[in-house]
């Protein structure tokens, strides 16, 4: 393409009247070697456009993004906000469970459990129970005997009291 045509195209270009195809022709022209001195500035600008068009992302971009997308493939993503809420509730439950465990341990230490059943043979257990009950019964018997003595004292006291009141009345 000769310089006159290029001049005309450039005029259209500055007025924003060129089509994409015409602009491509300009790009092709300025990519070539023989650029007139008068078009040096414009050539610089078109070279800039070409250079900019070749800028690209780093090579590791695609694998990194693919990895991220794969993680999200399962469907809905749990947002960080809801995850934080779940974590908060879980931490609360954990604290309650741990606290309950330690309090129970403390309570057990403070109030040890009563003697546990040591007999496996029912007959033996029966004999032992009988022995214990007899012992209680004997104690009750003894207590009754002693209480009998107390009654004797009471009776004697009453007799004295009646006698004294009778004498007072006579006087």
């Amino acid at each position: 393409m000769d310089s006159d045509n290029i001049e005309q195209l450039l005029e259209k270009y500055w007025n924003c009247e060129t089509s994409l195809e015409e602009e491509q022709q300009l790009h092709n022209f300025f990519r070539g070697g023989s650029i007139p001195e008068s078009m040096k500035d414009t050539a610089e600008l078109f070279r800039f456009f070409e250079t900019e068009k070749n800028k690209s992302l780093k090579e590791n971009f695609e694998p990194a993004v693919t990895k991220q997308l794969r993680q999200r493939q399962g469907g809905k993503i749990i947002s960080m906000v809801s995850f934080a809420n779940i974590a908060r509730i879980a931490a609360g439950i954990l604290v309650v469970v741990v606290a309950t465990y330690f309090i129970r341990q403390e309570v057990r230490k403070a109030y040890p459990q009563e003697a546990q059943d040591t007999y496996t043979d029912p007959q033996m257990a029966f004999e032992e129970t009988k022995k214990a009950l007899l012992m209680i019964s004997n104690s009750f018997g003894k207590a009754k005997k002693e209480a009998g003595k107390m009654k004797m004292f009471n009776d004697a006291e009453k007799k004295i009291q009646t006698k004294q009141s009778a004498e007072k009345a006579r006087i």
């Binding site: 610089e44 600008l45 070279r47 800039f48 250079t51 800028k55 690209s56 780093k58």
Partner: peptide
Amino acid sequence: HVQNETKSPHDTIEMTESMKRIG
């Protein structure tokens, strides 16, 4: 410093000044 796929390092150095200016 963004990657440039087509230009050789020599070309890049030569053009850097004017490219930078237009940028």
